[in-house]
Amino acid sequence: MKDEDKGSYVHRVREDTQRYIKDLLGENERLRNAVAVLEDEKRHLEAQLDVQAKMVRQEIERREKEKASLQKRLQEIESESLRFIDQYSKVEQHNANLANLYVASYQLHGTLNREEVLSVLQEIVINLIGSEEFGVFELNQNKTSFHLIASFGIDADRHKNVSASSSLIGRAALSGKTWIKGHGEAAEGLEYSDLLACIPLKLGGQVTGAVALFSLLSHKPELEEVDYEMFDLLATHAATALYCTELHAARAGASE
């Protein structure tokens, strides 16, 4: 190769190299710009993401609060509902108790026949109070003893006459207040100290007799609130009903 040709070749290579370098630099610049755009875009997206994440977090927080509030409201409603159920149950029980008292009163005054009144009295004690061991006593005229006029589940002969002074039945009845085991005065030393309850029968404030309960039915563990109401009712209504039968019998006898 001639020197002239060599010089031309070198020149061409240099030019090519310079062009290549220029292209490379151009390409580098273009890539740098593209990276800058992408970086910018990335920052923009990150910012957007941050905003959205913040919104999502706020939404979650709002929902959590709403959930807690709903749960609290649900608990309130549940407890309110339980309270209503409890109240309804109490009202129902109260109605049933009133029905018991109404039935007892209605039945006691539904007849002027002494035997029927005593029979109703027994039904009330068995079916509404829940005792199958009891006696109904009447105070004699000189107020020294109580005479058995009706009974259920006890030996009638053994309890035919009960002392007014030395027996728990007599003492409790003459006090004019219902006596309940564990609530009244101690009964040691008196006859019938194992009595469960004694309800005095009163007419115009005067004691005329007593209902003595010896035990409750096996499935009834103790006396309930309504039983005390029933005792109060029996104290006056049973005595009145029995007195009415006497009046009626006396009137019927006089008119014959």
């Binding site: 049933a96 029905a99 039935v103 209605y106 039945q107 109703v120 039904e123 009330i124 079916n127 509404l128």
Partner: peptide
């Protein structure tokens, strides 16, 4: 046979 029970049941 007890009228008190029948009456209670009727009321209920």
């Amino acid at each position: 046979d007890a009228e008190t029970i029948l009456m209670m049941e009727r009321m209920i």
